[in-house]
């Protein structure tokens, strides 16, 4: 059988998916064990036991200074910023994207502007955000929004324009005006596409979040990682990175499930 026609069975598929992860863990653990054999105090590649202790310390013991459980406090702070930034971006993306994608008079001034704005590297305006919005929450949320919203606007505008012209004409022959065309035809068809666009922007959103937290913050996952770097505390940094990865992956998974659940027609039409 040709290679292009050979498909793994479900069991084999899971096995093959886990294989590289297991291999990586194995390589890491053996390298760590080797270094610890030479120097029991090695900090660069902490052993599994060291990391478990660190997680225990960060997540399940009160911090002596603040009295908080740091891992959960950091997670809460970061997720809050992320949710606010993504929520704001989604709202802006929907409103401007749909308006630009359905109203040519609105698109004429707005879509070239958004195309230009989306080319500004968000991190380059981070200092401006700190100056304008101060060093606290707002500037971090704004960084995520500035980084993500223009992409969502452009994507949704594009998706709205991609909708078959026939459907908009059909809606008009059914008595729709501009407003009801948008609310009953365009918006419902773009909502699942918004969720997909959000999933694609998750990586960027995390990047902006961690950057902002690393530069100016007193809590958050990004703040903690950069703080721990000073102490070469790889036993904390590595579990934190794994935790961030797990959070990002779960958010992606949740958005995917939500798309399938809330928009059964979308999954059925196979787009």
């Amino acid at each position: 059988m040709r290679l292009i026609n050979r498909v793994p069975t479900p069991g084999l598929r899971i096995g093959l998916a886990l294989l590289p992860l297991l291999l990586m863990a194995l390589i890491y653990l053996s390298a760590s064990a080797q270094r610890h054999a030479v120097n029991p105090d090695d900090k660069l590649l902490p052993s599994a036991a060291q990391m478990v202790t660190a997680v225990q310390h960060m997540g399940f013991e009160q911090d002596t200074r603040s009295g908080r459980y740091l891992l959960w406090a950091d997670t809460g702070a970061s997720l809050r910023r992320l949710a606010l930034g993504l929520g704001l971006s989604a709202a802006i993306g929907l409103v401007f994207g749909i308006a630009a994608g359905t109203l040519p008079l609105f698109a004429a001034p707005v879509s070239p502007l958004v195309a230009v704005l989306s080319m500004i590297p968000p991190l380059a305006v981070l200092p401006i955000l700190f100056i304008v919005f101060g060093l606290d929450e707002l500037s971090k949320v704004m960084l995520i929004t500035i980084g993500v919203a223009p992409m969502l606007v452009r994507d949704l505008e594009h998706q709205a324009l991609q909708m078959p012209r026939e459907l908009l004409i059909k809606a008009q022959t059914l008595g729709a005006n501009t407003w009801t065309t948008i609310t009953r035809v365009v918006l419902p068809q773009l909502l699942p596409r918004l969720l997909i666009a959000l999933r694609l922007q998750l990586g960027c959103a995390w990047l902006f979040l961690i950057s902002a937290e690393a530069i100016a913050s007193t809590d958050g996952l990004g703040y903690r990682i950069f703080l721990m770097r000073r102490y070469l505390a790889m036993d904390v940094i590595l579990p934190y990175v794994a935790w961030i990865t797990l959070l990002a992956y779960s958010m992606d998974w949740l958005l995917r499930r939500l798309t399938a659940r809330a928009f059964p027609w979308f999954a059925e039409s196979g787009k």
Partner: peptide, 27 residues
């Protein structure tokens, strides 16, 4: 092609026109 709305059930596709016609604001 593309005459019917993919996001509405068969019944809602036919109801849509009646709704749009009668409810000009909320549709």
């Amino acid at each position: 092609r593309y005459s019917v709305f993919p996001h509405l059930t068969v019944r809602d596709n036919v109801m849509l026109g009646l709704e749009l016609q009668a409810a000009r604001v909320v549709g």
